[in-house]
């Protein structure tokens, strides 16, 4: 993972893990790697890895079971909560950027409505099936 070295590393890893949960790549109840493995995976200091888990616990995303490790909380609503949190974040920054460009609310809504991805870019939102 590529870090922005001017922002706290632990926050960036917390966000990365939340994103994995929101995207369903990590499921509620799943065991998270040990601090050591998390450190190796993200190329961070093991102290930072421990701090990541502290923050995830404080945010009620993960829980540490004595002796066995850290798990994603077995909470069915977690996925939607994480999705909402992530989506809020992206939307907030999108709106901030659009506001910087001088767009008004109705303009932004119309812009999104009319948004057509060019053929060459495959990254449009998937249609609900």
């Amino acid at each position: 993972m590529q870090f922005d070295n001017s922002l706290p590393i632990y926050q960036q890893v917390v966000t990365a893990i939340k994103k994995e949960i929101a995207a369903g790549r990590i499921t509620p109840g799943e065991k998270l790697p040990s601090c050591r493995d998390l450190a190796l995976q993200y190329r961070i200091n093991p102290n930072t890895a421990a701090r990541v888990y502290q923050v995830l616990e404080a945010d009620h995303v993960a829980e540490t079971r004595r002796g066995t490790g850290t798990y994603v909380r077995e909470d069915p609503s977690l996925l939607s909560v994480m999705r909402k949190e992530m989506a809020d974040g992206y939307t907030r920054s999108y709106i901030r950027d659009m506001a910087d460009l001088g767009y008004h609310k109705d303009e932004v809504l119309r812009y999104l409505e009319d948004w057509n991805v060019p053929e060459s870019e495959p990254s449009d939102l998937p249609e609900r099936t």
Binding site: N5, S6, L7, I9
Partner: peptide, 13 residues
Amino acid sequence: TEDLRTRTGKSLA
């Protein structure tokens, strides 16, 4: 290092 990033928004570099 984390303190530097939190306090000043600067990287070590």
